[in-house]
Amino acid sequence: MSGAPILLELPSAVREAALLPLPLLLAASDVAELLDALAHHAPLAERMVRDEQGRLRPHLALFVNEVARRGPTLRTTPLQPGDRVTILPAVSGG
């Protein structure tokens, strides 16, 4: 684990289920490290946003400083000190 604290914003359903305060400050240098840190800090919250193969759940969207990140490079997206990562339910359903 390396890097400066990153602000991680989680969906309210995750915060409520995992009894998490906001904001979460976790040290990480990329998105995968950030979610690994979440798994260490709050395993239930991590499992709600990431499946057992370490992939972001398909109907969630992840933003770094309000820029959507997706696809095969999501995990290795670099993070800088002071970055804000936001995970939101994507527009989906029926």
């Binding site: 969906p11 359903a13 995750v14 289920a17 499992r47 709600m48 946003v49 499946d51 759940r57 109907h59 969630l60 339910p89 994507a90 989906s92 359903g93």
Partner: peptide
């Protein structure tokens, strides 16, 4: 089973 957050 939540379409967003998995199954509990």
């Amino acid at each position: 089973s939540s379409p967003w957050f998995g199954t509990s």
